[in-house]
Design a protein around this nucleic acid. Structure first.
Lengths: 237, 237
DNA sequence: GCAAAACCTTGATTTCGATCAAGGCGACTC
DNA sequence: GAGTCGCCTTGATCGAAATCAAGGTTTTGC
């Protein structure tokens, strides 16, 4: 196993060597030859905050940044249905029943592959198919986690849960108890959209968390959590 | 293609011949030999309404009935995160991050297969893996559909959306405009749980829909929709 | 540097759905 | 048939968050 990995290391394309997403994402399932073929067909992009990501039949490793997934409602409003944090995988086979848009919340770096190529490799390499399936199921679990929020949680619990989710995703190696600081990549309007609240309520609840000493806020977007545990206690689940 | 299907027909196990789920579910991806092997290892169950389905490492075709998926909250309450209607597939590889329970809402008939066997076949047969992936993504789409409901919809829109969802799933060959009747397989409490409302509000909104002529209610559980379109107009999306 | 725009906060009032309360079926038991 | 239990409906009241309103702060553009 270790030997096999070392053998791979020797041949991996230079572009992949420093890629954070390589082991965890799709690429970890591929052998050196496949990785080379994929790297050949891949392209790196930078997308700046606020831009919609084109989804022209590609999968992409999200190398850095944060992306929101939204669905348009008939009344012109949009519902946020999920987020992607680096180093996540974007894209999926098959069409969604209702179209979902992806938009960069921060500046974003992507490594994209043609879907057809990946899908073909998935036929040759069961491990790759398994990873795609695992990935879809993880997203399903995340979505279901948020289904509890709607009706059962108070506004303040929703905001606390949201902060916790962002903290955990932005700081993947979440050092346990200690305090965590991060830049909120969303506007109040985005948060409100996601949580099914209004901007005003989100703002009020953040203020309350600040007054209660659970978080500190510098410059609107810079958040520091006093402690993970303290916030967990406010999540209501 | 047609020839291949005919060849399969000749050899399919007797038990599978009349199975409604065969083409649509997993089994449609298998050749006759695999189907025979699977049928060999499969077992049929009946589960009566109100019973929890054991999920001891199996996939199951849901041949008839309705199943609810729930997640336990720390406060003892439960959140309904989804439903399965015949002829659906139950079960998944990998553990969910947080456990999900499945409970029969009506009497239910299942055809179950050991997970290990299916997972092994998925390695041999890319088409099977593809179907599992498609299935997971469909469930993800469904879950995301309901994420819009929480914050953005009024109680009455939620109830209308819910009725529509049940109608569409219970009557798979949804004849378009005409009126549809069905037995609601859920108690008011279940509906309330799913929609994040209270029993009283669900009851009130059903009464309102009845008074407005959008639905008729006989015996609490027997629902008739005047027309799909009329209900769609009340869904708010 | 100034003006405009975007984003955020806080306060006052209103509203929708929760909560509290009472009573009506229908099914089952004894 | 009377009594109990589970499920549902309807009414009255209350409260959390929406809405309405005003003003503050940060960013952007010229």
């Amino acid at each position: 196993m270790a030997a096999r990995q070392d053998a791979q290391q020797a041949d991996v394309p230079a572009i992949c060597k420093s890629c954070e997403a390589r082991q965890g994402g799709l690429c970890g399932a591929l052998n050196a030859r496949q990785l080379a073929e994929l790297a050949e067909a891949s392209s790196m992009h930078e997308v700046s905050a606020g831009t919609e990501l084109p989804d022209e039949g590609t999968y992409s490793n999200l190398l850095s940044g944060v992306v929101k997934l939204t669905r348009d409602l008939s009344d012109g409003r949009q519902q946020i249905v999920g987020f992607h944090f680096a180093p996540d995988l974007l894209g999926r086979p098959f069409e969604a029943k209702r179209p979902i848009k992806a938009e960069a919340l921060t500046n974003v770096a992507l490594c994209s592959f043609p879907r057809t190529l990946v899908d073909r490799m998935a036929n040759e390499t069961p491990e790759l198919g398994r990873r795609l399936l695992k990935h879809a199921l993880d997203e399903l679990d995340d979505a279901r986690d948020w289904m509890a929020a709607p009706g059962r949680k108070t506004a303040s619990e929703k905001v606390a849960s949201f902060l916790l989710m962002v903290a955990r995703n932005i700081d993947p190696a979440h050092r346990p108890a200690s305090s965590i600081s991060f830049d909120l990549p969303l506007t109040r309007a985005d948060i409100a959209d996601f949580l099914g609240l209004t901007i005003e309520t989100v703002s009020r609840e953040l203020s309350r968390l600040r007054l209660d000493g659970a978080i500190r806020i510098a410059n609107k977007r810079q958040i520091s959590l006093a402690s993970i545990a303290q916030l967990e206690a406010r999540c209501g689940d």
